[in-house]
Amino acid sequence: MFRRSFWIVFFLSVASGVAAQSLASAPDRAFFDVNSSFSVADNFFTETWNPSPGIHLNLRFPFFAGQVESGARYIRFKGDAPTPTDSDFHSIFVHLGWSYPIDITARYQIAPVLLFGNNIMLFDESEVFTNQSGTEMFVTDKNENEFAYELALRNQFQISSDWFIHATISYNRTLTFFPLSVTLVSAGVSYSFDTPRWLKKAFK
């Protein structure tokens, strides 16, 4: 899995190196990204709850020296918690962040990305722990949300005037009592368009 993701990122990097045409993304261009992600590093969290491929929608707009980003990523986690209760859950990471694109060639950019947001966890069931006599109980909530941050490196390659492909490696950490860490590699497409006038006005 990790090897596959490495080659995706590597391919984009090499391909960009031979491209020498001008990048169509002017400073006032906005981007809409769609990608799919998969987990590439195991830890005690992902060994218990297996993440399915994720779907990520993201919008980027020019902001100060870089781009402001906002979006959401959905991942379904299926798990085998050491209780009979079904502990599968939906995870939605809603985020806001900032990236700084760096032109490597005319068609190829890399961008370090920092995202902050909330990891909303919707569990299929709630757990009820009881004592032997059943007189005392500890009932857990069916939903949870916790702060999370993500560090990422995005590789973006232009394939037409408005369309791009990108591959990203990211590290996401949710600050629960036992932190939830996932390392993701994602690949997808981006569509570029002129930033709407109303949005430019809003950011001004």
């Binding site: 986690f77 966890m121 569990f123 857990t140 949300n145 916790e146 009592f177 036992f178």
Partner: peptide, 18 residues
């Protein structure tokens, strides 16, 4: 949001926290 919630470990009787 205060950090330190149990998250999915709430299902793990050996790791759950309030």
């Amino acid at each position: 949001n205060e950090t330190g919630d149990p998250g999915p470990f709430v299902f793990d009787s050996l790791r759950t926290t309030p």
